[in-house]
């Protein structure tokens, strides 16, 4: 595996607070990688260290082999960062913003590529509009465009779809996916677990500055999340005592049972039959990342 981004023993402290507690992680070239974790897990601090916005107290970070501190000029050329905050420069139009950003990377004649990005992000008709007059979703797309002006091989998106409506989100992901298929490495932090589940090939789960789990999305789902069996019991009947330990949730007249493996289903149905409990309805739910997330991170309630 050619390594696109490497974190080696990265520690970052803010006073007594340890934001990153020895992060070691290699992300391969061409990967679509997810960085997940609750607020305060250290995801954005890790991205900031990668981008040179923060300086780690210990450890080393490289982008395609280039140290982000010693060889920052090359490292930053290889990186496109979409920041979490919805920021913009109110003095300029969309096209001016992108031209200026290109020039910062030493690209003077970049209009063909700028037009292409604008087209893919559905911003062509806003090219000459001042940044102040754009909606939040459009400003977000300009931030994505700004991160792409210099055609970086590694693209980092820090919560890119917060506040973006569903339609735009789909369009954005189509574009990012295409970039990934073209060979770009994508690193994504997100709160939307469905997004990570459908997009990311590999995921790191972070909490309190540490990586709690690191595996392919499929393995994580298989390892930490079984199927769920949702039962609607016949009127007036309740779950047999034998099955109580598997009960994960009760919603109205529905109970949700955790199945570690699919073949456990037979046993559940046999137990119900023996107890004489009738089943009005039944459905099987596939494992999902939210489940994995909750189990590993141990949050009491779902994050948005």
């Amino acid at each position: 595996m050619r390594v696109a981004v490497s974190f080696a023993g990265v520690v970052k402290r803010f006073g007594a607070f340890i934001a990153l507690d020895g992060i070691s992680l290699d992300i391969g070239a061409g990967e679509f990688f997810g960085l997940l974790g609750p607020n305060g897990a250290g995801k954005t601090t890790l991205i900031s260290c990668l981008a040179g916005l923060a300086r780690p107290d210990e450890g080393r970070i490289t982008v395609l082999g280039h140290d982000v501190e010693r060889d920052y000029r090359t490292a930053r050329r290889l990186l496109g960062i979409v920041p979490q905050e919805l920021v913009f420069d109110p003095f300029f139009s969309v096209r001016e913003t992108l031209r200026i950003q290109s020039a910062y990377f030493g690209l003077r004649r970049n209009d063909d590529w700028i037009d292409e990005i604008l087209h893919h992000l559905d911003l062509s008709d806003k090219a000459d509009t001042n940044m102040r007059r754009l909606s939040g979703g459009m400003k977000r797309r300009v931030l994505v465009a700004q991160a792409l002006v210099h055609r970086p091989p590694v693209i980092v998106l820090d919560e890119p779809t917060a506040g973006v409506d569903v339609e735009l989100r789909q369009g954005l992901w189509r574009f990012i996916r295409r970039l990934n298929e073209d060979g770009h490495t994508i690193i994504l932090t997100t709160h939307y677990l469905e997004e990570a589940e459908t997009l990311c090939g590999r995921i790191a789960l972070m909490k309190r500055g540490r990586i709690l789990a690191l595996d392919s999305t499929a393995n994580l789902l298989a390892r930490f999340s079984g199927h769920a069996l949702v039962l609607k019991l016949a009127a007036g009947q309740s779950l047999p005592a034998l099955l109580q330990p598997y009960c994960r949730a009760v919603r109205g007249d529905e109970v949700e049972l955790a199945l570690e493996r699919l073949d456990a289903l037979e046993g559940v149905l046999a137990t119900l039959r023996q107890a004489g409990v009738g089943v009005a309805d039944l459905r099987l739910q596939p494992p999902d990342l939210e489940d994995v997330f909750m189990r590993i991170v141990g949050l009491p309630e779902a994050t948005p």
Binding site: A51, G52, L53, Y72, R73, T74, R76, R77, L79, I81, P83, E85, V87, F88, D89, P90, I100, Q101, Y104, F105, Q146, H150
Partner: peptide, 17 residues
């Protein structure tokens, strides 16, 4: 202004010495 609005990031991310 760039610091308060956060747009300072646009000059901190590129390879500007």
């Amino acid at each position: 202004q760039a610091k308060v609005t956060g747009s300072i990031i646009f000059v901190l991310l590129p390879p500007i010495s």
